[in-house]
Every structure is written in structure tokens, then in C-alpha cells.
Design a protein around this nucleic acid. Structure first.
Ligand SMILES: [Mn+2]
Ligand SMILES: [Mn+2]
Length: 301
DNA sequence: GATGGAC
DNA sequence: GTCCATCAACGCTAT
DNA sequence: ATAGCG
């Protein structure tokens, strides 16, 4: 039922460990916590020093969920938090900042099946560490997502831009470009927009840049608007609150081909996969990209 | 999941 | 002590 | 200002 563990020298209460978070698959909250303990070494670099947007499912994937950013003074002392002024409400929001395994498990115990970090760190909130291209299919096959991802890859390869790809764990894929916190969100977003437009021109039949779902039926939405402060995507190695407990899994580009099935990467087998092949996203937080130079190479009028 | 008031 | 109601987002874009 | 989106 409940258990107290010591991690990072902190006593942490883990509760309701036998609650069925995925009733059909018989996967419990305890299984979820066990997964995050196993992969913590690999997921933590993508959470470190980043404000966390909580998406809580305290009663599992079939229960009601809610978002939480402001944790007030709810967490114990040893959980790092950071207050950020919200532009829209003019109120200070006290975010959890994940810095270690104990904090990760604290969040998971709150019902966070998925982990949603900001793309910027508190040391440099205005400059993201990576650019994200988010591929969201709207009533179209996953093979079309794959085809779109490969089109993006082709565009980036032509300009010799390094890119890294993962399943979202739901229905789409994410492509990351390392930036080393060198550009603000406005420049990053404009760059992402250009990549999206060139890709759309390459495969106009299966893609769309329309924001309204009704205007992009049966297309893959090339979502470049996640490149804004505080906009999040599920982290690499995050579990998703979806059937089968799929995991957002980094892939080798050679694995991105027709027939790829995102359900093949899930809470049951991802830990083993990582131990075997390591972290495919390793360079995302280490390399950079010279946007000015690459813009010239893209040569987009 | 945590809190607090009613019972 | 138990039960139950209540609470827990935000930034951007287009109109 | 507000609706829609993720
Ligand atoms: Mn997506
Ligand atoms: Mn999206």
C-alpha cells in the first residue's frame, strides 16, 4: 500500500502503490514509480533545473486529470521550487524544479504519470536548450507521421543541422534540435516556423500548418508553436497516460521507417532498451546550432 | 493527493 | 475518526 | 477582450 524510502538522503513517502493506474493492463502506481527509479539516471538530465508543469492523474489514466503549476508551499523543504511571475495573471507561480531522483519520485507520487519540463532552465529562462518540432496527426496513420518526420530530417540534413527524434508516446513524434541556450524563444520559434514551412512544401498532401484541428483533418500538424516559454512536451523517457503505458522513446533515425509502432516502446521494455543502447538524446543538451549560418543554408526566401 | 469542516 | 467537498494552468495566436 | 489550442 504505502512505503517510505530514502533517496538522496531524503525520506520520501510513496502512497497507494497498489492503485491500478492502467486498469486494463493491470499496471499499478508502484510499477510506474519502479519504472522511473530504473530510468532516473537517463531522464534526470532532461529535468534538471527546469520548472515542471504537473499533469496529475491521481486516479490513473481513466480518472480525472488536472494541471498544476503553482505548488505553493505544499512540497517538503528538500524539494526545490522557483517562483516565476505569470504575465497573464500577474501572480507569482511557485514551480517545482526537478534536481534529483527524490524530487522526480515526489512528482510521480502526486500522480504525474508524464513529466513535462520547460525547455529552458531557471539559470536562463528566456533561452531554450533545444528547438522542438512536434508532429501531431489528426486522423491519419502513424506511417504518415513517419513520412513527415523523414521529410523534416531531409530538410535539416540539407542544411547539416543535427536533429534527434523520439516517439511522443501518444500518436505523434517529436524532433529536437540542440541550441545550447544560445537564442531566445522568438528567434527559435521563427527558425522552427521556417523548417515547418519548407517541410510542408515538401509533403503538402499529408501535412498542415493549420492550428485549428477542424482545418487539418487527415493531416499531420507540424506544430512549431511549442517553442514558447513555458510550453512543454513530454520529456524523453516520460511515460504517457495512454493505453499500453507507452513511453516517449528516443529513436535512431534508421529506426524511423514505415511500420514503426510507438506502442512497441512502453513501460515494460524501455528500461532494458536504454541499458542496452544508451541515451540516443545524449547530444541534445551538449551540441549547439548556429541558426544564422543554418538559415543561409536553408535558403528560404 | 492534500486539506479542512461537519458530523 | 471518517466522510465529503473543494482545489489544483499558462502563453500564444487569431479574431 | 475573448476563444481556441496544446
Ligand atoms: Mn504532440
Ligand atoms: Mn502539439
Amino acid at each position: 500500500m504505502d512505503k517510505e524510502v530514502v533517496i538522496n538522503k531524503q525520506k520520501l513517502k510513496l502512497t497507494n502503490l497498489d492503485k491500478l493506474y492502467w486498469p486494463d493492463e493491470k499496471i499499478t502506481k508502484g510499477d510506474l514509480i519502479e519504472y522511473y527509479r530504473e530510468v532516473s539516471k537517463y531522464i534526470l538530465p532532461y529535468l534538471k533545473d527546469r520548472p515542471q508543469s504537473l499533469n496529475r492523474y491521481p486516479n490513473g489514466i481513466k480518472g480525472k486529470n488536472f494541471f498544476q503549476k503553482d505548488v505553493g508551499n505544499m512540497p517538503p523543504d528538500w524539494v526545490s521550487t522557483y517562483k516565476i511571475l505569470s504575465e497573464s495573471t500577474n501572480k507569482k507561480v511557485n514551480y517545482i524544479v526537478c534536481r534529483n531522483e527524490a524530487t522526480l519520485l515526489y512528482m510521480v507520487n502526486l500522480g504525474c504519470i508524464e513529466i513535462n519540463p520547460w525547455s529552458s532552465r531557471i539559470q536562463s529562462l528566456e533561452t531554450p536548450d533545444y528547438l522542438a518540432i512536434d508532429l501531431d496527426p489528426e486522423g491519419i496513420s502513424f506511417d504518415s507521421v513517419v513520412e513527415t518526420a523523414l521529410a523534416v530530417k531531409e530538410v535539416l540534413d540539407e542544411a547539416e543541422i543535427s536533429s534527434y527524434c523520439k516517439t511522443s508516446g501518444k500518436t505523434g513524434m517529436h524532433i529536437f534540435i540542440p541550441l545550447k541556450a544560445k537564442y531566445n524563444f522568438e528567434i527559435t520559434k521563427e527558425f522552427a516556423h521556417i523548417i515547418a514551412k519548407i517541410t510542408h512544401d515538401k509533403v503538402p498532401g499529408i501535412t498542415s500548418l493549420e492550428r485549428s484541428p477542424s482545418k487539418r483533418k487527415k493531416k499531420v500538424y507540424i506544430d512549431f508553436l511549442q517553442n514558447n516559454i513555458g510550453q512543454t512536451l513530454a520529456a524523453p523517457y516520460s511515460v504517457r497516460p495512454s493505453p499500453g503505458a507507452a513511453v516517449s522513446t528516443p529513436l535512431l533515425w534508421k529506426e524511423v521507417k514505415r511500420g514503426l509502432d510507438p506502442h512497441d516502446f512502453n513501460i515494460k521494455n524501455t528500461s532494458k532498451r536504454i541499458s542496452k543502447i544508451g541515451d540516443i538524446f545524449y547530444d541534445v543538451l551538449r551540441k549547439g546550432t548556429d541558426i544564422e549560418k543554418k538559415l543561409k543554408k536553408l535558403d528560404y526566401a
